[in-house]
Design a protein around this nucleic acid. Structure first.
Lengths: 348, 348
DNA sequence: TAATGAAACTTAATCGATTAAGATTCCGAT
DNA sequence: ATCGGAATCTTAATCGATTAAGTTTCATTA
């Protein structure tokens, strides 16, 4: 319940009661060198007794132009992004760093129409994945604030990325060493469709800048290197990193005439869904089918069998992004990844 | 890159340029009925051309006393809370509702020393779990703002809870129907220790108000009902819902002389860790050991075998909490739960 | 034609702070 | 005794808006 109060407690009213100027009260809180030690303690003590908790932070931020709040722009709605364990790890990293800096985080949806409603509250933005509403990218580009982008780039702004092509190449290499192997690729948003579907050959040609296409490049490089067969027939595009869509794709692939013995999956969520499907069909992993994922989520370690994947240290990316936020000049960072060979690809 | 600008664009400067009063410009944005349609369009058009995006929201919020931001006070550090899938689902629910209301969310750590630094920026608080720093509870209790608590209560404030005792009783009942069964309880923070440890009988007596103790009450009620044996020897306390601690507890229980054939786990995370341990020891679930969890996280559905649990619709709780936030008077809400019988407890 | 009153704007106080510049006090040095 | 300057405190402008109250304009009605 709100406390009863006669007058509203503000810097001004407190100053009035104590019979000093507001400047002095303000200085008591912010600039100890501007007044005598004696007076300062006197004022702080009186404030405590009156129940005045200190300067209003909103007013202070208006005057000073700094709020101590960082806006975290998500690629999509918070609901969707938070359901993704990779994003979640990233958030953990960001919040860990920011908490230590006593800075708070304002969550901002990537399909909000504009940043107008929040821009004046924050000291800048960390942007996780290209926002779905592309207008936001323009606003971020033009804003007179600090900006750090993650998993995409805005010219002149700080950014954090991994080398997706190289990572995909290496994870593919860990499991493909023979032209006789048949690979199915379970990709994420390779084409613009609301449903799980096979990719046609011609659609593969279009150059795209998304993370998914860089990963595809890496997979294809390895398959071509060993002389394996790979066409649109072997590639599925899943509209979002969801269990249901991924299971559909896995089932289709298993029932198709290509009879894959390797699944290259563009996320661990997809890989785990595929693995569950495979196991439920009575097949063995890795004996019948080898499966690798991408991301390195904890669930992959726990799963039985555990999942071989690209560990991309998402929380480290979060830490790095937060760190770059406080740098004075823009800086591009390529974060490391690690190939984690586990049970799902390795016959004991 | 920031755009070059001669003068800073504010309501005042824009009014100066357009040769009208600031009131008129303000009204053009906020109160269309206060000026002619003609003038309004004229002003908005000019603003667009000048590149003035509209009133500064921080200044507006200072004046109006509303920011359109809700503070989400977490029980612990964001890093720790976000790593918990249940909290994550809750967040999804909250954000879903708030996004639709065009309200943004400010994340606040539960071990922050005070809410002072954020209280002036938000219209109120939703508080997920009792904050670790209890001083915050007092501040929340005294604040002249809206407050909704979840999974705990503050007198006179809105709250959202499930009936933990009843839920625990029911899930226990689904798996225990015989005095011959031997049950091990893997509990969460039943006693104040940093390590996984067995609970001693005398420690069970102390009445506690935490969720964990309500759940324990429910388990014990069922076990006593069927005449099963239950002592401190059968109960483990795990310091946090983490995989490693839970595996320790499971291993200890399996190797102990009580030889349990039922695991009642106070979270799905604990249950899944225990299950992985059981499977790795070569035992079968549910044939050798039945395992039930609590929470209803997605990973439980995906796991093989899938996990029997109490679905507590955490995202619904989030929605409800957000909904209550906008109610004018305090309201206590008890949200439903559902017993989900799946593979881990049911012999086909 | 004068009174009336709604419509369209403007004035100015206010939200709650920060801070440069000015005023006063006080002390030691010349 | 006087001057300089540091220490301490006050004055007042400012951050960027909102809004009640006041002013002017102008069409309507008696």
């Amino acid at each position: 319940m709100p406390k009863e109060k006669k007058v509203k407690l503000t810097l001004k009213s407190v100053a009035g009661i104590l019979n000093v100027s507001n400047a002095t009260v303000s200085n008591a809180f912010n600039r100890p060198d501007q007044l005598s030690e004696k007076k300062r303690e006197e004022i702080l003590k009186a404030c405590k007794e009156l129940g005045y908790a200190g300067p209003n932070q909103a007013a202070r931020s208006l005057r000073k132009g700094r709020s101590g709040i960082v806006g975290l722009v998500l690629s999509d709605s918070p609901k969707y992004v938070m359901s993704d364990p990779v994003a979640n790890l990233f958030l953990q990293g960001v919040t860990e760093f920011l908490e230590q800096k006593s800075v708070n985080l304002l969550l901002i949806s990537g399909n909000q129409p504009s940043l107008k409603s929040v821009v004046d509250f924050v000291d800048g933005f960390i942007c996780y994945g290209a926002p779905r509403n592309t207008q936001l990218i323009e606003e971020l580009s033009d804003a007179d604030k600090r900006v750090v982008t993650v998993d995409f780039n805005i010219e002149g702004r700080s950014s954090v990325n991994i080398d997706n092509e190289q990572a995909a190449y290496q994870i593919a290499s860990s499991v493909i060493d023979d032209a006789e192997q048949t690979t199915a690729i379970l990709g994420l948003r390779l084409i613009d469709s609301k449903y799980t579907c096979r990719v046609h050959d011609n659609e593969l040609i279009g150059v795209q800048h998304s993370i998914a296409h860089r990963r595809l490049d890496g997979y294809l490089r390895r398959i071509n290197e060993v002389g394996g067969e790979i066409t649109g027939e072997h590639i599925w595009s899943i509209p979002e990193s969801s269990h249901l869509f991924a299971k559909d794709a896995a089932r289709e692939a298993l029932n198709s005439k290509i009879r894959p013995d390797v699944f290259l999956c563009m996320s661990d969520i997809i890989a785990l869904a595929a693995m569950k499907e495979v196991l439920q069909m009575g097949l063995r992993v890795p004996e019948d089918i080898k499966i690798v994922g991408f991301d390195g989520i904890n669930e992959g370690v726990r799963f039985h069998p555990s999942l071989t994947t690209v560990e991309q240290f998402s929380s480290q990316k979060g830490l790095k992004a937060a760190e770059l936020f406080f740098e004075d000049s823009p800086e591009s960072n390529i974060t490391p990844f690690k190939i984690e060979i586990r049970e799902s690809s390795q016959i004991q």
